[in-house]
Amino acid sequence: MQNWRKILFKEKAVKYTLAAAASMSILIVLLIFTFLGKEAFGFLYEPGLKELFHTRWMPVSSQRESFGLVPLICGSLLVTTMATIIMIPFGVGASVYIAELAKPRERETLKPFIEILACIPSVVIGFFGLLIIVPMVKKVFGLQSGYNALSGAILLALMAIPTVISISEDAIRSVPKDYKSASLALGASKMQTVWRVIVPAALPGIITAVMLGIGRVIGETMAVMMVTGNSALITGNPTESVRTMTATIAAEMGEVPFGSTHYKALFCVGIVLLIATFILNLIAFKILKKYRMIG
């Protein structure tokens, strides 16, 4: 009797310990929002929300400091949009090729090889960009400097491509085989089957893949900081230097005094980033769930 009670107690204890460990993720998410919010809230109190809509980011100035997020958001948007434009044909094209057109042996070599790209640290990609992409962009477009939004977008696309390929490849492969057989039996060619049947059927998964890729692009810091030139301009011109939100935090956090307005402003930038990626991921997973592409 005594022994039985002991075992039951142990069972319960184990269960609750494990549940506690699982709840840690909830706790961490709450802590992230709390600690970012805490510092950012200080900014809303003094100098106020209005300051964030200013069109200039000049955190250090002898006359008047201004903490407008507009140029930073603009920079991030420009780089992200361009990276997305580059990423879609490469990512989707390659995933369709690997999932449907490549021979089995070819697929088994291509997949792990592309996964290597996902493992390369972003600072190494940035280093590669610094020495290869930046001079190349400068030369090809005849610019004065290759440190611009375009170089950043190329690197970011490169970094997001493995994410896009791996998720959309899964989506394409999860399309029921019957669709393919039916289409082929109706006399459609292989390419027609791929583009008119399989890709449309896998579209929600492909869209999700692209969105998760975009999420990765917005949050990427080091590579983009190393090649975009980092001047906070409001511009739509890919050949101009931009400063993204992530790069701003990474570059300036080291030098700001704790608790200063500048310090709080950087946490506001962090909040904007956090919310943007949060929404992107939420939508992506809602789509996946709706079309039952994940469990």
């Binding site: 949050g219 990474a250 956090m253 962090g270 980033l273 990626t277």
Partner: peptide
Amino acid sequence: TLAGVPSIVFGLF
């Protein structure tokens, strides 16, 4: 959510 948080935001946190 955690999986999607940018690494720099983890830094801030």
